[in-house]
Design a protein around this nucleic acid. Structure first.
Length: 490
RNA sequence: CGGGGCGUGGCGCAGCCCGGUAGCGCGCCUGCUUUGGGAGCAGGAGGUCGCCGGUUCGAAUCCGGCCGCCCCGACCA
């Protein structure tokens, strides 16, 4: 199995999804393992995707009134320890700096696992009056959580993310903010990633350490497991109390501010791979692809090469003018086939082949990375028409990826009464990803389900995702008080 | 942290049981011929066999300890 036959492709997803994922990520050159335990190197192709994600998200944050700022990497240990649930949640995975400048530090610093504490300590300095609120900041940063078991992009010890932190005068305003950003995440995942998530609230046991309410986007991966792709928290006044974040209200009273925090990380890149990838490799949606179109000139003799190069340059120029991110692969030591495989593994949405035959006809061959049923993969198109039609072609592909992912999510979702834990387990074993059911609200039921099936409540779905007929029975027996969605999660 | 697997040129592996000249494929370099789905031939470079210690005339191989990586589980907004 290690010979040439194996080298031609990845381990099929159906055979070993985990092996497929690792191979897909590495062969697409998204990331590589590093000498540092649990920390990966994000390579240019992977980082390019992240940069495109950042740009889109950053624009959305700005459009909703937020500004960027930057806070220190190191946080005094005492800060983390101040909020009781927060410290309990994060203590086990903290990396601590105890020694610097050649001597032991008086107070250790932790490498931020998240920045609530240091940010709200600063907000406390900046806020005196209700007129200073709201504060709407975001930071792009790296954070560190010493995870016991890591996986490329999905869970690494160090990862890149953005964390939004806001302070408001009222609870209603804070909750509105938390929900607004949940909606921003959802739009981003749908419109840019083609990864339609379920959104809703977290149960008590799954919420963020220190939050009053947590909201999340949960996406269904191709292996039927859920990926928590983004979270937004209404922190109440928990941190404000610990850090003295108070303001004088319009009525002259001293009050604690209400906070929110929200974040998405490089984990999204892993989600992208597991949403759209196939047995050939990664598939990157056009809006996020660092290169949307790869032009491959094909020629034997020097004269042929000169002719196809010229045509390739014309196409690259034309596409560039049309706002398409395009590149020509002019390496002469590689055969066309080798280049085809390489770019397919990386997931470039469209390839344009230009050989002597095409030049003679004034055509190019346009090849799609993914095809709809019944659609030709390769297509000879007049050069001018190929260039002019490319933006529309890319948008169509973007839309198709979203629809395919939505269809997979729906096919992997079970709705209807689930009246026992055994039945829930059978549904999950039978291929269901998201299983809707009723729930009494009793944490003991969650615990029992987890024991028996390894599934957890991913969300208490928002209105739009609830079933037409609300479930009446709780999976643990008795009456349901709400609808929940179960899944085995990453 | 529990269980399993694995550390040998850049990558993937064989050799280890049974101690004795370190091997294969891919990749890389040079030359020539090639280029429409992973090119061919010829020549070449590249390895203190994860680390430390022990046994032995002699250790990739046997013994002890340590370190690291991957997978499953536990843990993990």
């Amino acid at each position: 199995m290690t010979g040439p036959a194996r080298r031609k492709g990845l381990t099929p997803r159906s055979e070993d999804f985990s092996a497929w994922y690792n191979e897909a990520v590495q062969q697409a050159e998204l990331a590589d393992y590093s000498p540092v335990r649990g920390s990966m190197v994000i390579r240019p192709w992977g980082y390019g995707i992240w940069e495109n994600m950042q740009r889109a998200l950053d624009d959305m944050f700005k459009a909703t009134g937020h500004s960027n700022a930057y806070f220190p990497l190191l946080i005094p240990m005492s800060f983390i320890e101040r909020e009781k649930e927060h410290v309990e949640g994060f203590k086990p995975e903290l990396a601590v700096v105890t020694h610097a400048g050649g001597k032991d530090l008086e107070e250790p610093y932790v490498i931020r696992p998240t920045s609530e504490t240091i940010i709200y300590s600063m907000y406390a300095k900046w806020v005196q009056s209700y007129r200073d609120l709201p504060i709407l900041l975001n930071q792009w940063a790296n954070v560190m959580r010493w995870e016991l078991r890591t996986r490329l992009f999905l869970r690494t010890a160090e990862f890149l993310w953005q964390e939004g932190h806001t302070a408001h005068a009222t609870e209603a305003e804070a909750d509105e903010e938390a929900l607004r950003m949940l909606g921003v995440y959802r739009s981003f995942m749908e419109d840019w990633m083609g990864m339609p998530p379920l959104t809703g609230a977290k149960s008590e046991s799954e919420k963020f350490a220190g939050a009053v309410r947590s909201y999340a986007c949960e996406a269904l991966m191709q292996d039927g497991r859920a990926l928590q792709a983004g979270t937004s928290h209404m922190l109440g006044q928990n941190f404000a109390r610990q850090f003295g974040l108070t303001f004088q209200s319009e009525q002259g009273r001293e009050e604690y501010a209400w906070n929110t925090s929200w974040g998405v990380s490089t984990r999204l890149v892993g989600g992208l791979v597991m949403t759209h990838g196939d047995d050939v490799g990664v598939v990157v949606p056009p809006r996020l692809a660092p290169t949307q179109v790869i032009v491959v000139p094909i020629g034997r003799s020097d004269e042929q090469w000169a002719a196809v190069r010229e045509a390739a340059e014309r196409v690259v120029g034309g596409l560039g003018d049309a706002g398409v991110r395009v590149e020509a692969d002019t390496r002469r030591h590689l055969s066309p086939g080798a280049k085809f495989f390489e770019w397919e593994r990386k997931g470039v949405p469209v390839r344009v082949e230009i050989g002597p035959r095409d030049v003679a006809r004034g055509e190019v061959v346009v090849v799609r990375r993914v095809t709809a049923p019944g659609e030709e993969r390769k297509e000879g198109v007049g050069e001018g028409r190929a260039v002019a039609g490319m933006p529309a072609r890319l948008e169509a592909l973007q839309g198709r990826l979203l629809e395919a992912a939505r269809a997979r999510r729906e096919a992997g979702t079970h709705r209807g009464e689930v009246s026992s834990i055994e039945e829930l387990g059978a549904l999950l074993d039978g291929g269901a990803g998201f299983v809707h059911s009723g729930w009494s609200g009793d944490p003991a039921v969650e615990e029992r389900v987890k024991e028996a099936t390894r599934a957890t409540i991913r969300v208490i779905p928002g209105e739009e995702f609830r079933s037409a007929a609300a479930p009446e029975r709780c999976v643990g027996g008795g009456k349901a008080r709400m609808e929940v969605v179960w899944a085995r999660a990453y």
